[in-house]
């Protein structure tokens, strides 16, 4: 009964506590670092370079003392269709023959292409989880704001984060009401239409809530603009981290360029 509750995805990683060394680094530095790393890693082709790149991510994860289990589960958890995609690659890529299995021919080229995609995907997500996933959503919003992302998008982000938890509880309440009336999810029409009603109800209730929220905000003088108050400053920690991280990226780029 894994879907008895209907929600079986893992919950997000907890934000790191205030005093943690990673939290002393400005959100902007962390966001820019994770993005630069992602673009560089996606551009690399050399498997050794990609391996070292992933190693940097693992090193940072260990240095930040993140819980290993949840972090790695999120890094490796992908859609089933990505798994199919990678498993099919050796059989669909032309190149040097690896083995033959009935009518199917697997190639080394396809295998290495699959490994390449796997290393890139894992590296990018791991670095994102370590550097950005460890900050609370408010910090993320402020960081993105100071990096020049449109204010409306930031407000949308902050609202979404604020009400995700509220709606989750609302959903579980509705779900519990269904269970109380003896509803058991099965693979049939009744289940699917019931889920449709459930989600429609969730939408209706969130809309009603948003009207109450807006009313309450207007009572407090909301005029359509949020004022994001933050005290973000780039300090010594940022320069130190930024320099070391940039050196790492330049090294990776250099290895790729020299190796290619």
């Amino acid at each position: 009964m894994s879907h008895a509750l209907g929600v079986s995805r893992p919950r997000g990683l907890e934000a790191l506590p205030e005093g943690h060394w990673l939290q002393r680094i400005d959100p902007r530095t962390r966001i820019v670092a994770a993005m630069a790393y992602a673009f560089l890693l996606v551009a690399c082709r050399d498997l050794r370079v990609l391996g070292i790149g992933l190693g940097i991510g693992v090193g940072l994860m260990l240095a930040a003392r993140l819980p290993l289990g949840p972090t790695l589960r999120r890094t490796l958890g992908v859609d089933l269709f990505i798994v199919m995609l990678l498993l099919l690659l050796p059989f669909t890529t032309p190149g040097q023959v690896w083995f033959q299995w009935g009518p199917l021919t697997a190639t080394w080229d396809g295998l290495w292409r699959g490994v390449e995609i796997g290393l890139k995907a894992a590296g990018v997500i791991l670095m994102l989880l370590v550097l950005v996933g460890t900050m609370d959503a408010t910090r993320l919003g402020h960081g993105l704001h100071r990096l020049g992302v449109a204010p409306k998008l930031i407000h949308l982000l902050l609202f979404t984060v604020r009400y995700m938890g509220v709606l989750r509880r609302e959903f579980l309440r509705l779900r519990q009401a269904m269970r109380a009336r003896g509803f058991v999810p099965r693979s049939d029409l009744h289940t699917w239409t019931s889920y449709g009603y459930l989600f429609g109800m969730l939408l209706v209730r969130s809309l009603e809530r948003s009207e109450r929220v807006l009313d309450a905000m207007r009572c407090r003088g909301f005029d359509g603009r949020f004022h994001l108050l933050d005290s973000l400053r780039l300090g010594q920690a940022d320069w130190a981290f930024g320099t070391v991280f940039a050196a790492g990226l330049i090294l990776l780029g250099g290895l790729e360029w020299a190796g290619g």
């Binding site: 998008l153 979404t160 699917w192 939408l203 809309l207 807006l214 905000m217």
Partner: peptide, 29 residues
Amino acid sequence: LRSIGEREIPRVGLLSAAFFMASLIHVPV
């Protein structure tokens, strides 16, 4: 974003959160 009025942000934000919830719901098939 251009078509979101300033006062509509709570509404779109809540709907966005509702759809985020949807992606966490597993339906048996």
